[in-house]
Write a protein that binds this DNA or RNA. Structure first.
Lengths: 248, 248
DNA sequence: TGGGATTTGTTCGTATGTATT
DNA sequence: GAATACATACGAACAAATCCC
């Protein structure tokens, strides 16, 4: 793992968390000055952490422009889920090959945490733990490169959820995690990979359910979606027309 | 794709090429000043391109230390090949699903270039083209994220070859590429993925054949390897004993 | 083990480009 | 469309850490 300056490492982790937990929404500006000042480091290091986040696909940064939290396109979102599925399959297969009983206990402990967070309606922690389940499983594969790649993809999936999914919907159904653990315990590679594939597939469906972004990027689409809903439910209210984007 | 300043982009491509073609060997120093001066840009941008290369695993960079061309460990090398195999499988499957006849022609044209380079013993171009075959195939999958990830892994495999393989051995047996194309043409997913898996496997075997690094990192191992060879071939020459590493 | 050369990390002023009003 | 505010890019100079002999 490529190390960086201690303060830069803290900044990196903090920004990453904030983006994943949807405290910083896609499109939010990230000026070098501010994040440098906030974490008590120079712009040099602020730049470095932003570059790192950019390489992972969590921030967009073009020359001479302020960096922002990334806004992956729908196409990119689909691509990300596709690659994620392929790597999750690999992680499951490798983990089963070197399975140890402790692994099951560790994963089940994690699922208990997930349930606790769900129970107290702690959305932020729920989102984080849902992703961490997959990272822990990847770690058990014993392949650090795979673990890193999956961590990156899982983060980007959280970002996609923030962009296209319902606000604050957590990523995973916890019981699906339990089913996967059961299959791992039985060393059932075919079953476990199938369950994992279905699981990630259902996350994807939930994330990309909306045919248009939920953020105010496609004002027209959002408004017409609401219009449809309202019309269907009786059309009692007349909707003011928003400023139209010039058709390109 | 995250864009960067035009000059920084040139520097990035040039450094990447130089590393892949083994003109810059693993361990070579990459001072910010020098690469900045060489490409006519400030240290600010030099730093940015180094950060990018670091994120892709092509350079090592620790705080307060000069960046160097990366030296992946043997373990990391194995992990990289493992992940690469998983993604190559995916690329093959996706490409077959949206196969077009032009694809076959394009890939065969590429193989002709590879053969030409091999024929005129142009090692540098051979190494580059061998990798590019896999990138072109990944591009045909239609998945940009997959393409990027595979490009990164293929680069790192070239680096591994520079570290552990024979010097200037090109990465791929060209005829293996032709066999893969034939299977793609038949839309034979099972056959194509199997061929691809075997192909990458054989590259890996060639790359990691040596039980010790060929660079002067494990002086003892290198010396004893030579000693063995020489002894076997008659032991006419007495070998001076090199400086021994203190056993940790 | 020490000391000089090298290189990174920081700061400031200025210039240039972008976004907003 | 112009003017203004904002943020990044550059260059130089300096301190501190590291490398190398």
């Amino acid at each position: 793992m490529s190390k960086s300056s201690p303060r830069a490492e803290i900044a990196y982790q903090a920004l990453r968390q904030a983006i994943i937990e949807q405290a910083l929404l896609p499109g939010a500006k990230l000026p070098e000055d501010q994040i440098g000042a906030h974490f008590g480091m120079s712009r040099t290091l602020a730049r470095a952490t932003l570059a790192r986040l950019q390489a992972e696909g969590l921030v967009d940064a073009r020359p001479k422009r302020t960096a922002t939290v990334a806004q992956p396109t729908l196409e990119e979102a689909r691509d990300i889920f596709e690659v994620r599925k392929a790597l999750e399959r690999e992680a499951v297969a490798l983990t089963i090959k070197r399975w140890r009983p402790e692994y099951g206990a560790a994963l089940e402990g994690h699922v208990r945490e997930e349930n606790a967070a769900k129970a107290r309606r702690d959305d932020r922690v729920s989102i984080r733990l849902a992703g961490e389940f997959h990272i822990k499983l990847a770690a058990m594969s014993g392949n650090k490169v795979l673990q890193r790649a999956l961590a990156e993809l899982v983060s980007r999936c959280s970002l996609i959820l923030a962009l296209y999914g319902r606000p604050h919907s957590s990523e995973c159904a916890v019981n699906e995690h339990s089913q996967i653990i059961a299959a791992l315990r039985k060393k059932d590679i075919a079953g476990a990979t199938r369950l994992m594939e279905e699981h990630v597939g259902s996350v994807e469906r939930r994330a990309l359910l909306a045919d248009a972004p939920s953020a105010d990027l496609d004002l027209d689409a959002v408004l017409s979606r609401y219009a449809r809903t309202i019309e269907a439910s009786n059309a009692a209210i007349s909707l003011p027309v928003g400023r139209r984007k010039r058709s390109s």
